[in-house]
Amino acid sequence: MCLAVPYKIISKKGIKAIADVFGIKKEIDIRILDDVNVNDYVLVHAGFAIQKLDQEEAKTTLDLLREISEESV
């Protein structure tokens, strides 16, 4: 089951980190992310952070939404 909700890293120690999702704190494993830092948003699957969320790309996608929705067909 894929979970779209992003978790925010609030502290990390070795391959483990504490992440916050809407005020809920969870310990997650960060061993498969090469470079993850406090305040990064990550996607979590089965207790593992599987990818960092790229804020710039998120903005680009929303820009794309705006562009397409305003295009004239």
């Binding site: 498969i32 090469d34 996607l43 599987i50 790229d54 790309e57 998120a58 996608t61």
Partner: peptide
């Protein structure tokens, strides 16, 4: 790719190595 905030061109190589 319309999920670029999460999906990189090359995915997650560290995960694939595992």
């Amino acid at each position: 790719n319309r999920y670029k905030r999460a999906v990189k061109e090359n995915g997650n190589p560290a995960a694939r190595r595992l």
